[in-house]
Amino acid sequence: MTSFGLFSAALLLVLQAPMLAFAYDPSPLQDFCVAVKDPKFAVFVNGKLCKDPNLVKAEDFMFQGLNIAGTTANKQGSNVTLVNVERLGGLNTLGISLARLDYAPNGLNPPHIHPRATEILVVLEGTLLVGFVTSNPNKLFTKALNKGDVFVFPIGLIHFQLNVGHGPALAFAGLSSQNPGVITIANAVFGSVPPISNAVLTKAFQVDDTVIRALQHQFGA
């Protein structure tokens, strides 16, 4: 068979084979994006406007201050210093961000989710009890971490860290989004504005109205 004949036979096999297509949507960088037909009502989303490359400086890729401990003088006894695209313009389109996490003794980074990022955490000082909960069925994965230990929290899953050591603790976290977002569960449920209906919350948590009102008062709704 000639070379042309071999090519024709191969092409015929390709055309007769089942065709598969693989595609995916880009990860969103905001909570929602409502479609509009009229461009005069449109806004630029899912990132930032880009600086003229001729005006870019080394300082655009630099952030200073993560050597400074965040204040943990609050109800939770913890502090998160996040370096995302809002604080470091050079992160735009790169899909990463960084956080410093400080914990007082018994300090807690309460259950929360990052809707747009997986998180990898490394402990630099102290001992942390960490964990995350899977989607249905709700299984808890938890571990005590010491200095030098690393733990991963998958994207969108509820997770937490509690300082169970005898002194302050320090950790750093990398996140797989320039704008990972954070939803602290208790604050979102009991402190939303406007508040979620008490009829919804009493039925969801199977407690009476006085308990819901006390929680709403605690979290600011």
Rank of each mutant, 00 (worst) to 15 (best):
A186F: 02
N74A: 11
L91Y: 02
V34N: 13
V133W: 00
R116I: 13
F61R: 10
F41H: 13
N138H: 08
E119F: 05
L49K: 10
S78A: 15
A69S: 15
T142Q: 10
I68H: 08
D25P: 02
Q76L: 11
N92D: 14
N187Q: 15
I158R: 01
Q218K: 14
A17N: 12
F172I: 04
G90P: 01
L145Q: 03
V189D: 01
A21Q: 09
F151S: 03
A58Q: 10
V182T: 13
N109S: 13
Q178C: 10
A117R: 02
F4H: 07
P110M: 11
D209A: 14
V36Q: 11
V83T: 09
G89N: 10
G156W: 06
L94W: 01
T127P: 01
F7A: 10
L157P: 02
P137W: 01
A69H: 12
G191C: 12
L101Q: 09
I212F: 09
A204C: 08
M1C: 09
H114R: 04
T81M: 03
H159S: 01
D60P: 04
K48H: 13
M62E: 07
T72C: 15
H217K: 15
I113H: 00
G191H: 09
T134N: 07
Q161I: 04
A144S: 14
L13K: 11
N92Q: 12
F41V: 05
P18Q: 04
V133K: 04
L11W: 03
Q216F: 03
K48V: 05
R100H: 03
P39D: 06
